[in-house]
Nucleic acid binder design. Structure first.
Lengths: 255, 255
DNA sequence: TAGTGGTCTAGACCACTTA
DNA sequence: AAGTGGTCTAGACCACTAG
């Protein structure tokens, strides 16, 4: 029942593909083909060195890659073993999400509102300022190929001495918010919830209230670890789906 | 405004912490502190070798780690540069999700129904069998500390020659489905949507219809790349939230 | 004690970029 | 041509596990 495998089992030293990539592919394919099943022990590093004529460092690098990928687990003194697939090792990328507003040709950001108001209890807590402090409030609508796909609300700390905010208010493209224009943001916390559209959201997104949607909340911090931005994106579920695979599948990582 | 930093800037060779971890921490902290800001070029590998008295391979390993983490980008012939934070580089782990039913002490799985039926059009397509083929249908409810948190529906290909299924039907703990008991599953495709609870789901989950929920769909394949399981989990949003961080934050990875 | 993985060295050669 | 990262060698020593 095994499919005919055109799998190389030696390292081609003349190939432009690095040896460590070739070896990683070989091992991954063997695992995928069932040569090594979950729980099985891989050949020792010394054996792999001899079998494929590579140095210990190269084998080590390959093993490290597979460990990082969650394909195998290496235990000192015992050996390297194939990991069974676990849901918990799966992860979902936000790349598809970011693409919603960084496809420069097809994406457009419309600034709905921007004004200064005083922070209420919740906003003040999120931004770590005193309630009543002035904050900048921004609402944006993101279009993809003419259709509204994302609704964004954001609160920014207002500090006359901090030029960031003034520049921020001019930003009509969210791309600049994250992707390096401002070197002000150091890190952020993100969370995803499921929610249903409110009347306001539904109207803007040309959907109907009660429709299922993702809510992606964010807090961004500056280099002094002070929050500078709190907000969230609303995206109807039918316009975004997170996909991934688990187990031995998928191509090479950056290494 | 910079906080007093108790950051080491040399490698302690007597420490039990590996040199490559120490160096990675040093660079990460310098980036986090703003010594190197997004877009800045890091010292060359040769400079790092001299500065910290480590071999080129060790420096290379550190750079590779930071590249994998998405903290820096290395460009051949030009240098290594600090990456601005990008939403697209963030990823969400399913670990919290798996914990919902693998905390053995607090989790309980109740088998609601298990029966054999014939595949309808959609099921047949997902499982890559002919419509009308017999499949196993299973419904489960997962409790956490006595409260229902997950509702699971699953279709399995029915094959008398394949012992997996028979064993599967006995499984009351989903843990065995994924975590290695059966070495039958090779890989799976997962996707997450936002949805709202149906009447049936709401009743079982002791919630109300129309409540926001996550829907995690899965297809698992065997070593011949044939689908063996298609199904989905329903989890009310108030019982699960996906969190992550983006940018320079977070501890060491397995390396 | 033998075998395993974990770390590290001190280079080498290559490909690429910039000037 | 000079400088950068990308790959790789041929070992070394260590920590850990098992019989």
């Amino acid at each position: 029942m095994t499919l005919g495998a055109k799998v190389a089992d030696t390292i081609d030293r003349d190939s432009y593909i690095p040896a460590y990539v070739q070896l990683a592919d070989i091992l991954r394919q063997q695992i995928a083909a069932g040569v090594f099943k979950p729980g099985d022990q891989l050949p020792s590093e010394a054996q792999l060195c001899r079998r494929y004529n590579v140095s210990p460092m190269t084998v080590r690098r390959v093993i490290n890659m597979l460990v990082d990928e969650g394909v195998v687990v290496a235990i000192q003194g015992r050996g390297t073993f194939v990991k069974p697939i676990e849901l918990g090792t799966a992860f979902f990328s936000l790349q598809d999400f970011q693409n919603l507003f960084t496809n420069q040709e097809e994406s457009r950001v419309k600034l709905l509102e921007t004004r200064i108001l005083t922070a209420d209890q919740r906003t003040a807590q999120k931004l770590a300022v005193e309630p009543g402090r002035r904050v900048v409030f921004i609402r944006r609508l993101i279009f993809q190929t003419g259709q509204p796909v994302l609704y964004h609300k954001e609160y920014l700390v207002y500090d006359p001495y901090r030029p960031l905010i003034e520049a921020e208010m001019e930003v009509t493209s969210l791309y600049g918010l994250f992707s390096g224009k401002g070197t002000n943001l150091k890190w952020g916390e993100l969370s995803i919830e499921a929610t249903v559209l409110t009347e306001e959201e539904a109207e803007l997104l040309k959907s109907s209230a009660g429709t299922a949607a993702f809510r992606l909340e964010h807090i961004f911090y500056d280099f002094e670890d002070h929050p500078v931005s709190w907000g969230w994106f609303i995206c109807p579920s039918n316009r975004l789906r997170f996909r991934t695979t688990v187990g031995v599948r998928g191509k090479e990582r950056t290494g």
